[in-house]
Design a protein around this nucleic acid. Structure first.
Length: 196
DNA sequence: AGCGTGATCTTT
DNA sequence: AAGATCACGCTG
């Protein structure tokens, strides 16, 4: 399948969060290690009218990448332990991003198993902190984009609406009512959504 | 159900 | 300068 070009990412964040489901995220490490995962869960974050979004109050040192061009990677560190992977959306100077919450391992499982310290396949990338660990992604890649030999996304057929689930976002305390989480129904690699 | 862990943001 | 919060994961 061909790689997605920037044009693909130039659509509203809400649409993008759904279009990304089923696509193949590729991470290539030195030594020609190829890691691939099928995106199975996403969440939308918009600067405007979304208090849960980092950029809600405007640009800061941390969130500045969210104002970059569509297809840029916004990665941040949280809870003293985890890195979160987001794909920037919306035109330049407008904040928006899609959080990648879970993937289904497609290639490079031995590396992921080593990274994660478990060989349970359903547990390798079934959460936003888990998948960055499995793919060895940290803040060094913040601001990189998906049009390189290191990171790109392969196209895949669009999923029928009947396979896509919708819910409130996980782990936030603001804007709790928004149904901005999208996931592939009945896929065993979707994260265990924490409640409360 | 509780807690580790450290950067970031808000409030003093 | 201090305090609160946090787009989480693991143990129990």
């Amino acid at each position: 399948m061909e790689r997605l070009q920037q044009q693909f990412y130039k659509c509203p964040t809400m649409e993008l969060s759904e279009l990304l489901l089923g696509k193949i995220f590729v991470r290539v490490l030195p030594g020609n290690i190829q890691l691939k995962g099928r995106i199975v869960e996403t969440e939308a974050y918009l600067g405007k009218d979304d208090e849960a979004c980092h950029a809600w109050r405007g640009k800061t040192a941390r969130n500045r990448i969210m104002f970059h061009a569509p297809g840029t990677l916004y990665i941040y560190f949280t809870y003293g332990t985890h890195y979160m992977l987001n794909i920037v959306s919306e035109p330049e100077n407008t904040a928006g991003a899609v959080l990648i919450r879970a993937m289904e391992p497609i290639e490079g499982e031995p590396f992921m198993i080593k990274q994660r310290g478990t060989d349970h396949i359903n547990n390798l990338m079934s959460g936003p902190g888990k998948l960055t660990k499995a793919l060895a992604i940290d803040c060094n890649s913040n601001g990189n984009n998906l049009f390189s030999e290191e990171f790109y996304i392969e196209n895949a057929p669009a999923l029928p609406e009947t396979m896509i689930g919708t819910s409130t976002r996980v782990g936030i305390s603001k804007s709790r009512e928004l149904l901005w989480r999208k996931f592939i129904l009945n896929n065993p690699h979707v994260s265990n959504a924490r409640v409360g």
